[in-house]
Design a protein around this nucleic acid. Structure first.
Lengths: 80, 80, 80, 80
DNA sequence: GTGGTCTAGACCACC
DNA sequence: GTGGTCTAGACCACG
């Protein structure tokens, strides 16, 4: 008979995993209010993903009001 | 700092996991030459996937020449 | 002397122009509550853009609560 | 229905528009061989762009062999 | 060297 | 044939 055991289910997509780690780091105070986050390029290299994937993670936090972008400078934890 | 550990990478997609289990079962003699495999519907229920996903697994084995479909009847391990 | 006249300024990016046209069409009743919007592929062909550009437009409307996606089916004007 | 008309496509980028105007002015004799061009700062103010944008226009003409920079002094139409 | 946008493909799961 | 995700580049404006 075939093995009827449960399949390995797909994990959260990479962009969500990255978003979750950033959220954790911010929640734990690693990036206080006003702090600059790692650049998109750094995130790409850290996690081995394409830039659009890193950006999705950052945009997800932005949509939650947690961070904001300052074009030409970087991404920052929103102040108060 | 953010956790720089590796992301959880996607496992094999469900259709491939199912195909692999079917291949194993056939190789182990659970479905000898000419035997009828579980129906697409049964595979769907066993693994909790959509029908197209079960189909893709079966088509994968067919493309490898391991099984064949007899429309309206089912999928069978190829003879000879 | 050089011409000191004003430069031609960049227009809204394509994704925003597409989003604005969709918003207009919905506001004018071309897509009533519950209606299915053109597929991403259709938007690509209509406007000559890459799929990610068409998607950005749709995601912008989704973030505004105007439409929602039903994976495997399409994008729909939100009911109620 | 949505408006299927063509999108407004991006014009030439500002740095190219400025480069083109400089080229025109030189071709028309407004800046003869050896003449000093407007400073980067002046170009910024004239056109309302950032300094790197004005610089890129000048570097474009330099790469074409039309002008040259004398660091600390300015940009000049190349002689001979 | 930063974010903002875009291209032109790809594979996946589901209908 | 639909949306969801990803790749691996690209050009731009700005600091």
């Amino acid at each position: 008979m075939i093995d009827p055991g449960p399949l390995e289910r797909p994990k959260d997509p990479p962009w969500r995993q990255i978003a979750d780690r950033l959220r954790d780091a911010i929640a734990k105070g690693a990036y206080p209010s006003g702090a600059k986050l790692p650049s998109e390029k750094t995130l790409c290299e850290t996690y081995g993903v394409a830039r659009m994937t890193a950006r999705r993670a950052l945009e997800n936090l932005r949509d939650d009001g947690v961070i904001e972008s300052r074009p030409g400078i970087g991404w920052f934890v929103r102040e108060g």
